Amino acid sequence: MTLPRLALATVSLCLLAGAPAARAADEVVLKVHHFLPAGSYAQQMFIQPWCDKIAKESANRMRCQIYPSMQLGGTPQQLVDQVKDGVVDVVWTLSGYTAGRFPLTEVFELPFMMRSPEATSKALWDYVQQSALQEYKGMQPIALHVHGPGVFHMTGKPIQTRADLKGLKVRAPTRQTNRFLAVLGATPVAMPVPQVSEALSKGVIDGAVVPYEVMPSAKIQEIAKFHSETDPAEPALYTSTFMFVMNKGRYEGLPADLKKVIDANSGQALSGQIGKVFTAADAEGKKLTGRNAVNVIPAAELAGWKKAAEPVVEQWVTEVGAKGADGRQLLNNARALIAKHAGG
C-alpha cells in the first residue's frame, strides 16, 4: 500500500472509531430531579411519559435520567436552586416549598380558588406568562400546574366542623394554606410530603392536608384513619402550585431541533393535561382509604370557612402591593382565567 493510501486508510479508520463517540457527544441526557418515589403517580403518570415523548420525538437524541426521592441530594426546598444553578437540568417541585420566592404565583394557593385542576392549571400557565414570569428567572417553564382538592387526613378524629380543628397540629404545604389553617383554629406545621408519614406516626402532627394522589407515596392511609373532604360542589379548600422547569442555560444551549422538541412539549396544553392526570390520580389514591372513615364537610359549614378566609386573601393583596404589584388586579385576573378555562 502506498503512503497516501495508507494515510487515507488510517484517517478513515480513525473517523470510524470516533463515530460512536461523536454520536454519544450529540446525545443530550437531562437530569430530572424530584422529591417523590419512583412509584409515585407523579412519576408514573406524568414525568416518565413526558420523558418518553421527548425521547421519541428527538429520535432518541434527547432522553431523561430521572432521579426520584431526592437521590441527587439536598432537600425538596432546595430543588428550585438546584435547577437555577444548573446542578440538575429539570426539576418538578412545589413553588410553596420555597416560601416567599414566588409571591405573585401564590394567588392560586389562596383558599377556595380552584374547582377543576385541569382548568386551574391552564389558568396558572397563562397567569404566569402574563404577570409573574419574572419569578422564574434562570428557569425555562415546561409546565405549571396544580393538584386536586386538598383533603384532611387525621389520626384521631374526623374534621366535620371548624371547631374540630381547634388546637390540632396539622401539616400544610404552603404559606397561604398554613395561614388559612391558623385562622380556622389549627396549629399549622409546614413540611414537605416526604416527612409527613413519620411525623404522623410519631405524633408530631395530628393530621395533614394533602390530595388523595399523594397517599400511596407517603403511605398516609396506613396511619391516618379519618379522611375529611370538602363538598365537591364547592371550590377546593386549597391547592398547591407546581413547576416543571428546566435550567435556562441548558435549554438555550440545546441544538435548535431539540429545543423545538422541548417547546412542543411545554405550555398551557401540557399544564392542563397534568392537572387532568392529577384528577385521575386522586381517584386511584382514594381507593386506598379502604375501611378508613371518609366524610364530607358540607357547603353550609364551609360558608363560615370562606368568611374566615377573607383576611388571608386580604393579607396576600396587601403584601404583594407592598412589593409594587396590584394585588387586587392580580387576584381578579387569576379568578377570571380560572373561570375562562372552566368555561364559565
Rank of each mutant, 00 (worst) to 15 (best):
S217I: 04
T2K: 08
L302E: 00
K276T: 05
K169D: 10
D231H: 06
P141D: 06
K122D: 02
E284K: 15
K307C: 04
A9C: 15
H147E: 13
L110M: 10
L6Y: 07
T161P: 11
A236F: 14
G275I: 07
F46C: 08
R5T: 07
V146E: 06
K248S: 10
E57D: 13
A59E: 04
T239R: 00
E109I: 02
Y238N: 14
C64R: 06
A19C: 12
K286T: 09
R179C: 04
T289K: 05
K166M: 00
V209A: 02
Q273E: 15
L337V: 05
A132P: 09
V313M: 13
L72N: 05
K157E: 14
E135H: 07
Y136D: 06
V313T: 13
V83Q: 00
Q77P: 02
L330S: 10
N178W: 00
G344K: 14
V90R: 00
L270R: 11
G150Y: 11
K137C: 12
I338K: 02
A190D: 08
A24P: 03
L36A: 10
P211Q: 10
V183F: 07
S240W: 01
R101M: 11
V107S: 12
F35A: 06
Q129G: 09
S58T: 01
N60A: 13
A218E: 14
K306W: 07
H34D: 10
A233Q: 11
G150N: 08
I297Y: 05
A299K: 14
K307G: 04
A299V: 02
P49E: 11
M114K: 15
D89W: 01
Y212D: 08
K286E: 15
M1R: 14
I205M: 01
A308L: 15
F35T: 02
V277S: 05
P149Y: 01
K169Y: 05
G272D: 08
L3T: 13
W92S: 11
P311E: 12
K166N: 07
P49H: 07
P173W: 08
R250D: 00
A7V: 12
T161K: 13
F46Q: 00
M215N: 13
A132N: 09
T279C: 03
C14N: 10
A17E: 07
V183E: 05
V320E: 12
H145C: 14
P188W: 03
A119F: 08
H33G: 03
K219N: 12
D282W: 06
L72T: 11
K56R: 13
A281D: 14
